[in-house]
């Protein structure tokens, strides 16, 4: 396991009366892609912006590459690359000029041609930024973040608003960053993105970390199998821990699928009923995520 690159302990932040972060603990280690997963408004961006140095925190302790980002030290900024959700750039510069401009800010910049290749903008190097498509601008965002050859890269919702093929391209690019030995902290509200990219992840909901680990360990922590079917007749669910979903389906999470299924089907069979749209499947990360973030909301 690599050395800790990011350490946060008891991180708190309020906006007026609203407590955005209620004590976040986080460790990200060298060389891993760490994913901060959570619904909108959960505190992802606040957390990342504190780690980036863009936002002050009220309480707790933060170390990024051994330094406090709130101090705005150049030595720290020189080793960090940031892709914000939306950040402008001089639109009347060319791609190449903008990357050159940013390379000049850093003590050990990555060569221009390499950056263009990594983000796939070789063909557009002489285009004015104002003529780029939305997807190309996002590539440029990553290119500018890579200009200083950072050890640590922050990606705040890097694929929001992408079409499926653009997302796959972005995923390949991010996976490529891991191969370059970069440590990456990525926020997203897409389950599949976290599952696909992250070495470890933390689920954040309502200002708290509600789960942390690898995708596999997260799966293991939670019940393994999901049984679901449509609009059950009365009596079938007696004594079972079930949840009714908005679409009228009922789900049961269990570690004993055989026993529960037997109970359900024998009840249904003896009443001569059909369990419509009966489905049995291993819990997906999305199910786990929905459960984690929903419980947290209900617990308020």
């Amino acid at each position: 396991m690599g050395a800790p690159i990011i350490e946060a302990r008891g991180l708190r932040k309020s906006y007026g009366d609203f407590e955005a972060l209620k004590g976040i603990d986080l460790i990200v280690r060298a060389g891993e892609v760490f994913c901060l997963l959570g619904p909108n408004g959960a505190g992802k961006t606040t957390t990342v912006e504190i780690l980036e140095g863009h936002r002050d925190y009220d309480a707790g302790e933060v170390r990024v590459l051994g330094r406090d980002p709130q101090q705005h030290e150049r030595a720290l900024k020189a080793r960090v690359g940031i892709v914000l959700q939306s950040a402008g750039v001089e639109r009347f510069l060319t791609v190449e000029e903008a990357i050159e401009l940013f390379r000049g800010y850093y003590p050990h910049p990555r060569p221009l041609d390499e950056i263009l290749r990594i983000v796939g903008l070789e063909e557009k190097r002489e285009s004015l930024i104002r003529r780029l498509s939305g997807g190309q601008v996002r590539r440029l965002d990553l290119a500018l973040a890579l200009a200083g050859d950072p050890d640590l890269l922050f990606l705040d919702e890097p694929t929001s608003g992408f079409d499926p093929s653009a997302r796959r391209d972005a995923w390949e690019m991010i996976a490529g960053l891991r191969d370059l030995g970069k440590t990456v902290l990525l926020t997203t509200h897409y389950m599949d993105e976290a599952e696909r990219l992250s070495d470890r992840l933390a689920v954040i909901a309502d200002g708290r970390i509600v789960a942390e680990g690898t995708v596999a360990s997260l799966r293991k922590q939670q019940a393994g199998t999901l049984i679901s079917f449509r609009a059950p007749p009365p009596g079938i669910l007696d004594g079972l821990d079930s949840r009714r979903l908005q679409d009228g389906r009922v789900t049961i999470e269990t570690d004993e699928p055989t026993r529960i299924l037997h109970q359900l089907t024998s009840r249904a069979a003896s009443a001569d009923l059909e369990l419509e749209e009966l489905r049995v499947a291993p819990t997906s990360l999305e199910d786990i995520y929905l459960k984690l973030t929903a419980t947290e909301k209900a617990g308020e």
Binding site: L84, A87, Y105, G148
Partner: peptide, 17 residues
Amino acid sequence: IARDDGVLKRVRGTPLP
């Protein structure tokens, strides 16, 4: 405009004084 567009924020994240 540069502040609203996030141009300044992006620069703030670099070592440029």
